[in-house]
Design a binder for these strands. Structure first.
Lengths: 362, 362
DNA sequence: TTGTATGCGTTATCAA
DNA sequence: TTGATAACGCATACAA
């Protein structure tokens, strides 16, 4: 069958006819050894197919050479790309990635952090529902564990790799305003469980106000609704006068396009749509999606680099936000309704909450 | 600052005024202890914020409670979903996931396996370029490490969670044939580095033959070309008489749609397109993608379950392939060219290799 | 240049 | 019911 026996450095030493310390020194190049012994040890290691046990090393050295990473979901390409960026940066440094995902659940978040810490990770790269309220995260830091945040806006006492969600959202409002849009909506999934969505709404709202536009309607969706264009269509249909929607992420924006088609609205003729994130697939649509393009992979790289710096004891100051870009696409056009007076025609609902908000709070 | 000091069970024992063995028993509920001592130990652990070191445990118990997982890429939603499925299944079992990705590189593959093994994982869940030729994987198994494959067709000596790529591809050829298509093409990325693509081509090819159709043209793309519809358009343009394309994955199929538009071909009017995988985004396209729908998450779940069974010493027989479904979509229609004689009009290129194949071999 | 012995945090054994 | 102690695989201080 198989040699269930793990070969240890002891076996190597025995076969090479030397002490384990010598074997260790040879295999690690960490001390003196005669060419003769060196030869024997290396041969023995090769013959036995020996490789070090990371566990023994970790126990002895106090470092596990493992980084814990927590993201809400790996299925969301934004986070998948970020993790990819982390992997890239960590590759070759000797650190391995222990990955957990929370499925956007604040409790699972906390538990995952605790488990990661239990695994003796040397550092944490984290995107969670509410990092500011996580007891486990606080405890991890109390233990002296370096923590690097991703996607979160700056938070007291943490270093984070992020884009300025507020500013990016203002940019969208600006574009809408310049094209004559007045009545807008902000569409979001799990609004209450994401500081990113909140900040995007805040920026969008602020700029709309600054431009004298009516407050955007706030539409919150449950996960089920977002995946069913038919339901989304029903929600959008009654919003007469609406000419532009800012979706908190690209998937929602694509769903809006689909829903608009269902109720006979042209995009962008009747309805302009702008997304957020800049996922690749948006480019490939028949009507390419206008969106705020971010660089999740760069975010992962920066977060990882920050953590590596911390692990080396370097000072860790908050870097500036990563850049974003407005991608024009083809889902944004000027508003057809020229009149500005229609503000008075019908009251504009400031907030539309969908019924099935079965969301877990962080 | 912070208490860099990790609190160990020794600290707990000291504070509780008992031996470490007792503390261990209490905290693990693994042996007798008086209610009195139990109280003290638990209080001490709470006060110190104690949690066990997984490393010490692993060293002692011989098991790290960690599963190594290798996939080609996390950015591909197919693999991301599979990993998600693995996570789901592992959640609550006490096992953590150590994730590595190879970026479709056969060498990186091997290295990753070696690293994972060095980390003392208790088992491996793997999708790699060439599992049959991986020395590291062979060695891992020789050590007695349970290995569970994902996406790979059955391989001597391994258990795998897969869909029958050959059969699924035959199904596509059947659909093409029934709609009167004759001249077809198979489009693939990294053909030589994926047994999945090879088996899909084989099945497609076989069924085309069986139906008396000309052999499908085989088109291999480099990654760069696949992401640039313009280049893809140039490749497709000269293939006169082509009425149906089977793309080895949905991303390629979407790129084909885009490319077809560029050269003024209607989908599905002038060109039918069928993809593979059934990623969610295909549904949201203006012309929803016809595709073979697979269940990557179920694949991940099955692979994980298989591994858990192996870890419990259960017999590990190869389960049947996971089901696939033909998703109709709207990119598949009957061929316009009614004549069957056009087979003789122009020679049909059996294989079109793109120039920039900068692919690494496994 | 080499080997012995110690300790890292845990659990299991075994004697008290 | 308890607690001292050995082991796990490794690196290292220290003695040879």
């Amino acid at each position: 069958m198989a040699q269930k026996q793990k070969t240890t450095i002891k076996d190597v030493a025995r076969l090479a006819g030397c002490g384990i310390a010598t074997a260790s020194r040879v295999l690690n190049n960490s001390g003196p050894a005669s060419a003769e012994v060196r030869e024997r040890v290396e041969a023995a290691a090769r013959d036995l197919g020996f490789s070090f046990s990371a566990i023994g090393r970790a126990l002895q050295g106090g470092r596990s050479m493992t980084i814990g990473c927590l993201v809400p979901s790996l299925v969301n390409p934004v986070f998948a790309e970020a993790v990819q960026g982390v992997q890239e940066t960590l590759a070759g440094t000797g650190y391995q990635l222990l990955i957990a995902s929370s499925n956007y659940d604040g409790d699972a978040d906390n538990e995952a952090i605790a488990t990661l810490v239990g695994k003796e990770v040397d550092g944490l790269i984290v995107t969670m529902v509410a990092p500011d309220r996580s007891a486990a995260l606080k405890q991890a830091r109390a233990r002296g564990l370096p923590v690097s945040l991703m996607f979160h806006d700056p938070l007291e006492g943490f270093v984070t790799a992020y884009v300025d969600n507020f500013e990016a959202a203002r940019e969208v409002a600006r574009r809408f305003a310049e094209l004559g849009h007045r009545r807008t909506a902000f569409l979001s999934l799990r609004f209450s469980s994401s500081d990113r969505s909140r900040n995007r709404y805040a920026g969008f709202h602020a700029e709309c106000r600054a431009r004298g536009m009516p407050d955007p309607a706030l539409i919150e969706l449950g996960a089920a609704e977002a995946n069913t264009p038919e339901v989304l269509a029903e929600i959008l249909a009654p919003l007469g006068g609406l000419t532009a929607i800012f979706a908190s992420n690209d998937f929602l924006a694509i769903a809006v396009q689909k829903a608009a088609r269902l109720i006979g609205k042209q995009v962008p003729g009747d309805l302009s749509v702008v997304g957020f994130d800049g996922i690749e697939i948006g480019r490939l649509l028949d009507v390419p999606l206008a969106t705020i393009e971010t660089a999740p992979e760069a975010m992962g790289r920066q977060a990882a680099q920050t953590l590596l710096d911390m692990l080396q004891g370097k000072a860790c100051t908050q870097p500036p936000p990563l850049p974003f870009d407005f991608r024009a696409g083809a889902t944004l056009a000027s508003s057809r309704t020229g009149s500005r007076d229609d503000d008075q025609v019908a009251p504009w609902p400031p907030s539309v909450h969908s019924l099935k908000t079965d969301l877990k709070q962080g």
